[in-house]
Design a binder for these strands. Structure first.
Length: 264
DNA sequence: AAGAATGTTATGTA
DNA sequence: CTACATAACATTCT
């Protein structure tokens, strides 16, 4: 069986980062079977993420591009791995463990040029070292769109999804329908900082936790699902106990406390 | 068991 | 060009 090494561990929060596992590539299936065969015997050099897009850099200039979308998920099995369940698009087989990739939006073998094409569509990723916060802030305060919509626009800030949008706006006390160009630069900056910090915590704990351990009264590692978020899918505002509103904003459901996040 | 969901893209409209 | 809406896709969970 051909060999390669990979590093895996996907965060369920769609802001994937990884921890180490030495693995071997073997008989992947499905959509990228042909491309994957080319990966056999190649060594994984690096895993890179830009927003929700993952780029696995293999020797020989091959890049495995993965986007988990809504349902994409890596599952870990002990070796020998069971029969693939559902739409397994990739299987990475190691000495002790195997990973199946189910239901991703994207799973393609590409080259540098295509990766650049994809990255050129993406905005600043707060988790990347090369992120330019100023560029994102500039884009925000120039836009006439509602901030709730803009935060989902991956060409402005890459990596923020529906949960982080609702949570960051709540923490910053900004109404989702507030037009961006009526936000002050300090507000845009505080949104960026809040998102960056939330995303980092997401990576560290491998789940979305936006609440403060001080307020909750227990460490993040012991918080229940309900304690991890402020407003997303909540009925009541944790700050004023008022009703949390939800409506459609940018083709997704947004949640906000209209008392604490007043619209100017 | 229908419907929503931690998402993107392609296409059409104003 | 911008902004926005809609549909299509794929899977899990309630």
């Amino acid at each position: 069986m051909p060999e390669g090494h990979t590093i895996h561990r996907i965060a369920r929060d769609q802001t994937p980062r990884f921890c180490d596992q030495r693995l071997r590539v073997s008989s992947p299936q499905g959509r990228f079977a042909d491309g994957a065969a080319e990966l056999n015997g190649r060594i994984l050099r690096e895993i890179e993420a830009h927003g929700k897009h993952l780029f696995y850099h293999w020797s020989g200039r091959r890049i495995l591009h993965v986007h988990l979308g809504l349902y994409g998920r890596f599952r870990r099995h002990s070796v020998p791995a069971p029969e693939p369940r559902g739409a397994v698009r990739a299987r990475v087989l190691g000495r002790e463990h195997a990973f199946d990739l189910n239901g991703p939006t994207a799973c393609d073998v590409i080259e540098e040029a295509e990766m650049e094409r994809i990255r050129s569509r993406l905005g600043q990723d707060p988790l990347r070292d090369d992120a330019d916060p100023g560029a994102a802030i500039e884009r925000i305060i120039r836009s006439r769109a509602a901030i709730g919509r803009l935060l989902l626009d991956q060409s402005v800030i890459a990596g923020v999804g529906n949960i982080f949008r609702a949570e960051a706006l709540f923490v910053c006390g900004i109404h989702p329908e507030q037009p961006c160009n009526r936000l002050g630069p300090e507000q845009a900056e505080s949104l960026w900082d809040t998102l960056a910090s939330m995303l980092r915590i997401g990576v560290r704990y491998n789940r979305i936790i936006t609440t403060d351990p001080e307020d909750v009264g227990k460490p993040r590692s012991r918080m229940t699902r309900d304690e991890r978020l402020h407003v997303y899918k909540k009925d009541r505002c944790p700050r004023c106990s008022g009703v949390v509103s939800s409506w459609d904003c940018g083709a997704r459901t947004v949640y906000a406390c209209e008392a604490c996040q007043r619209q100017a």
